[in-house]
């Protein structure tokens, strides 16, 4: 299902999609977060967050900068562990298993991540996409898997003749799609996107958004975005965070048309942030 010019799709259309997708919250949860608290040193960054992320849906996290949305995202694959003096409390279940007790390497293979700034490795396009497969000892044919991932990331046609070229030579939008392909290559169940379009131009943004619609057919996607139109266009569910608290979590059309919390309304109507 590819819709050309999705960048211009109005909000109404997106909400229609969400409704078409059925009663959204009823999809079985892939990730269940309960009573999550998170601290940087002595400073608490997340307060008692509980929510369920349904399987093969796209959930958007919105909120003013510094509200904790990126922090929350980084708890889902325990990427916070690369920072020092962090502490976490609560429970995060992936398919019923608590990730805090899981082997972190296995966890991150299941929960992929794409970062705010494109961060391809200084290797060829091919090697970038093959990286995750190589370290996991992929048994099939690498070139097929790389092609498949690049196709899923809607980049294949642009780079198929230059797979040996350094990924750093690509444009920003292409680099970000290499990073998405790299994450997709290991077939993650969940994909975390941390403002994936913030460093991209509008055309590249449209391409990435278009790609998101295809992704969520096979993948549970969680995306942080500072752009409310984007959240409205692509997500089924939206969570609004403020100062580390989860203020509202509802189906996207509902949250944007009839927010249940006055703070949500204030935010989406542009009164702060």
């Amino acid at each position: 299902m590819s819709s050309p010019g999705i960048g211009r799709v109005p909000i109404v259309r997106a909400s229609a999609r969400a409704t078409e997708a059925g009663a959204v919250p009823e999809a079985p949860p892939r990730i269940e977060v309960s009573h999550l608290n998170f601290y940087y040193g002595s400073k608490q960054a997340l307060f008692d967050i509980s929510l369920q992320l349904p399987t093969n849906r796209l959930t958007a996290l919105i909120g003013p900068s510094g509200c904790g949305k990126s922090t929350f995202l980084r708890t889902l694959n325990r990427m916070y562990e690369t920072q020092r003096h962090t502490r976490i409390e609560g429970e995060i279940l992936l398919d019923g298993e608590n990730i805090l007790g899981m082997d972190v390497v296995a966890l991150r293979r299941k929960v992929g991540m794409v970062f705010q700034k494109p961060n391809p490795f200084p290797k060829s396009i091919f090697e970038n996409v093959a990286y995750g497969l190589r370290i996991n000892g992929y048994e099939g044919k690498l070139s097929d898997a790389v092609e498949r991932s690049l196709r899923r990331a809607a980049l294949w046609d642009e780079v198929k003749d230059q797979l040996q070229k350094s990924a750093h030579a690509l444009s920003g939008g292409q680099q970000q799609r290499v990073c998405i392909a790299r994450a997709l290559a290991v077939n993650p169940e969940v994909l975390l996107l941390d403002e994936p379009c913030s460093a991209l131009d509008p055309v590249s943004t449209a391409k990435v958004e278009e790609l998101l619609f295809e992704l969520k057919e096979s993948c549970t996607v969680v995306m942080v975005t500072h752009n409310m139109q984007q959240a409205a266009r692509v997500s089924e569910l939206t969570a609004f965070l403020l100062d580390g608290h989860l203020i509202e979590y509802n189906p996207t059309p509902q949250l944007f048309t009839t927010p249940s919390d006055p703070r949500t309304e204030a935010y989406i109507t542009g009164r702060f942030g």
Partner: peptide, 11 residues
């Protein structure tokens, strides 16, 4: 982000 990019892939 280079280090995290690899870690995020399960390295």
């Amino acid at each position: 982000d280079q280090r995290e990019g690899a870690l995020a892939l399960g390295a």
